[in-house]
Amino acid sequence: MTTSHMSPPLLSVSNLSTSFFTSRGEVKAVRGVSFELNAGEILGIVGESGSGKSITCMSLMGLLRSSGRVIEGSARFEGRDLITLDEDELSELRGNDISMIFQDPMTSLNPTLTVGEQVIETILRHRKVSRAEARARAIELFELVRIPSAAKRLKSYPHEFSGGMRQRVMIAIALACDPKLLIADEPTTALDVTIQRQILALLKELQGRLGMAVILITHDLGVIAETADRVLVMYGGMVMEEGPVRELFARPSHPYTRGLLASIPDLRDDTHHRLTPIPGSPPDMLRPPKGCPFAPRCPHAMAQCNAALPPLYHAGEGRRARCWLHHPEAPRVAGITAELVPA
């Protein structure tokens, strides 16, 4: 970690804003998101559906649906701004330097092509190799993601695989060209619990072996705890809190993060706590509130929270939190604002 801080980050996103222009108006899905990602690091992005976590990554990849547009901000990847690249330059990068896996392996693979073809076409797109070489590489990849009898399975169609196996195929496709960055968008959400663990373990192992950086998008804090180095908590299209996983879990410095942690069951805890859901629903991004987006649901909300959007307060080593409670004059709230200092 300390050495990687010396070299410039692999990806540096700053002030990224993305909107969708619909018939009902402008939906501000992502509002001024900034973060950095170092080579070989696993960054978790966590948030409810609609918090803007997937849209952030789709904006980086240039994969927004036609009504969506990045309206400001930059995303520097190895010195190039992904946002200003044209479609041709982006498609050179996609699947090559940056690759992506999706939530639902049942629908993410083309049902009418063999899985082998879907891996091979990726290799042939980005590498100057013969078809036979690409095929050999595909077998190697299948073995890497532990698909049994790899050579034979290349000829199978997606419907002949189980969900877990399909996600392995997706991972094989993503790893085909040794990417420097892998974006995994809810890679385990659609899978059975036991399969989830296998896939996560595989991802973590491959990351260690191949040394790529990973952005892991999920709404499941458990997944983050097991896998990520650092975590970004998003709400209402904004970064609410950021920090190293252990510290953030031990001492959440935003009421939303605390709410998220309180709403997941902890099996190690045998004092019969009731799970506390966060009341209310996420804000309407057509008309985002003027102040803190979480204020209407926040147990500590103050007049100031509805009046103005809080800035991101730097809170110690690599930690940031967007909450007025971190203002020096704000009332102290036990468990959230203890030893934090504003930047």
Partner: peptide, 14 residues
């Protein structure tokens, strides 16, 4: 006075 807590309005949140 801006630090005064607001009451959480359940109906508004829903």
């Amino acid at each position: 006075e801006m630090w005064a807590p607001t009451t959480r309005n359940g109906a508004a949140a829903e």
